[in-house]
Simulated scan of single mutants.
Amino acid sequence: MNRRAAERDGRRAETIAAWWLRLKGWRILAQRVRTPRGEVDLVARRGRTLAFVEVKARGTAEASAFALDEYRLRRVAAAAEALAPRYARAGDDIRIDALFVVHGRWPRHLANVWHG
């Protein structure tokens, strides 16, 4: 797949993920936030929980199982650390989530995937 198509598919998956989270009661605070340390696809809040969400789009459920590795999670964690002062409130539970978008299936949201 060429770079332009991958970019388009990634943006589409992030839009689907944002709507999925909204349907589950989350408020989307930001999308595609870049820092010198990495990028966060979605910043979302529900009550006292602030989630930095990594979105992965894959063609199959099997491929999605391998889409998120420790290296990518470390970059998201570094970006989340840089962004937390901007979005967090006192007493918030801050976590890193993953949301997998697979064609023909409901999105799969995994909470608190980073314990670094």
Rank of each mutant, 00 (worst) to 15 (best):
R58E: 07
T49W: 12
G47E: 01
A30E: 15
A90I: 12
R95D: 07
E7Y: 12
R95N: 13
E14K: 07
R58Q: 02
A57S: 15
V101C: 03
T49M: 06
A78T: 09
G38M: 11
N112W: 09
F52V: 05
F100S: 11
A17S: 00
A13F: 03
V53M: 07
L68N: 03
L68I: 04
W26A: 06
E81R: 14
A5D: 07
K56W: 04
V101E: 07
K56D: 10
A79W: 00
A5W: 08
A111Q: 10
R27Y: 10
D69S: 00
V53K: 05
E62V: 10
W19E: 10
A30F: 10
K56R: 15
A5L: 13
R86M: 10
K24V: 00
A17K: 02
V113M: 08
L99S: 03
G10H: 01
A17I: 04
R46Q: 10
V102L: 03
A61M: 04
R75S: 06
E81A: 13
L110V: 14
G38K: 03
A90L: 14
R72F: 02
L42N: 15
R74Q: 13
R72W: 02
V43C: 05
A77V: 03
W26Q: 06
D9Y: 12
R8A: 14
R86C: 07
I28T: 05
A111E: 08
V55M: 02
A77C: 00
V40W: 02
P107C: 01
T15M: 14
R75T: 06
A84K: 08
W19M: 03
R105S: 05
L73T: 01
P36M: 05
G10W: 01
W26D: 09
A77S: 05
I94Q: 14
R27F: 08
N112D: 15
H115Y: 13
A111K: 13
R11C: 11
A78H: 15
N112T: 04
R37I: 01
N112R: 15
A44Q: 04
R32F: 13
V53H: 01
R86N: 09
D69A: 03
V113C: 01
P36V: 04
R74K: 15
R89D: 12
R72C: 02
A98L: 02
A84P: 04
A80L: 12
L99P: 07
W26S: 09
K24Q: 13
N112C: 11
R8W: 04
V40D: 05
V102H: 04
A98H: 10
H103K: 10
R27L: 07
R27V: 15
A57W: 14
G104I: 11
V102F: 03
E54H: 12
D69N: 03
R105Y: 10
G116A: 02
V113H: 09
R11Y: 14
L50D: 06
D93N: 14
A82K: 12
S64V: 01
F66V: 08
D41H: 05
D69R: 10
D92P: 11
G47V: 02
G38A: 12
D41K: 05
D97F: 04
D93M: 10
G91D: 06
